[in-house]
């Protein structure tokens, strides 16, 4: 059975890299006694894939992992068992079975939403001003550095929604393999429009959720309701 797990990656584990998280889940499945499906070959491994990597230092309330488990297991019980043996900061929110032929989470991601919290030294009116200035521009060009070259990218069309309240900028951004913009890039733009020097320590970022086209949360995409 193919399942999709929605989980959190909170403060204490926000510095774990992608491979660290994968090893964590492998072992968490084992500790929870989940019967996993394994790949063929002499060194069988669990088959799992994550929806979208999260930058180091960013927390998340909505991460996704697709994997294969043996049929006939109770998903609610797996969730409970995993949460009993999980690590601080990792919490399973939901486990759902995927329909036959469901698109992989990784391929389905189209949008990601974030809360970017701005430090209290900056007045909330100022943040609001910056956010509104961003919404009112027609284009905002940034230099995107790849390994080989630098490229000018207009990030304004990649920002689907943006609002600010009490020093928190909430944003929904294009995500995935085609159009993608980082929350930090948008935060930098807002700082620029506020006329304030940007530094990474002036913000904290939390990813809220991931969505497919049509703003369908991944936990509801191609999943079978229990």
């Amino acid at each position: 059975m193919k399942i999709r797990i929605k989980f959190t990656k909170e403060e204490p584990v926000k510095y774990l890299g992608h491979l660290d998280i994968m090893r964590f889940f492998q072992r968490c499945f084992n500790r929870a006694g989940v019967m996993m499906q394994y790949s063929e070959g002499f060194n069988p491994h669990q088959k799992m894939s994550f929806a979208m990597p999260l930058g180091l230092g960013i927390t998340s309330s909505g991460e996704y992992l697709d994997c294969f488990i043996e049929d006939g297991q109770n998903l609610e019980k797996i969730k409970e068992d995993m949460n009993k043996v999980s690590g601080d900061g990792f919490r399973v929110i939901s486990i759902k079975e995927l329909k036959e032929g469901a698109i992989k989470a990784m391929a389905a991601v189209a949008y990601a939403s974030y809360d970017v919290s701005v430090c209290k030294e900056i007045p909330s009116e100022k943040v609001l001003e910056g956010a509104e200035a961003f919404l009112n521009t027609e284009s905002y060009i940034v230099l995107k550095k790849t390994k080989k070259r630098e490229q000018e990218v207009d990030i304004r069309p990649l920002v689907k929604e943006l609002s600010a309240r009490d020093n928190v900028i909430r944003m929904t951004l294009s995500a995935g393999s085609e159009d993608n913009v980082k929350a930090e890039t948008v935060a930098k733009a807002v700082f620029d429009l506020m006329g304030i020097d940007y530094q990474r320590e002036k913000i904290t970022m939390n990813r809220l959720d991931l969505y497919a086209e049509g703003m369908i949360p991944l936990e509801d995409l191609d999943t079978i309701s229990p």
Binding site: V13, Y15, C28, L56, D88, G89
Partner: peptide, 11 residues
Amino acid sequence: EKPARYTGGEV
């Protein structure tokens, strides 16, 4: 490099 070396909180 590898900040998680220093943050603890392991299972």
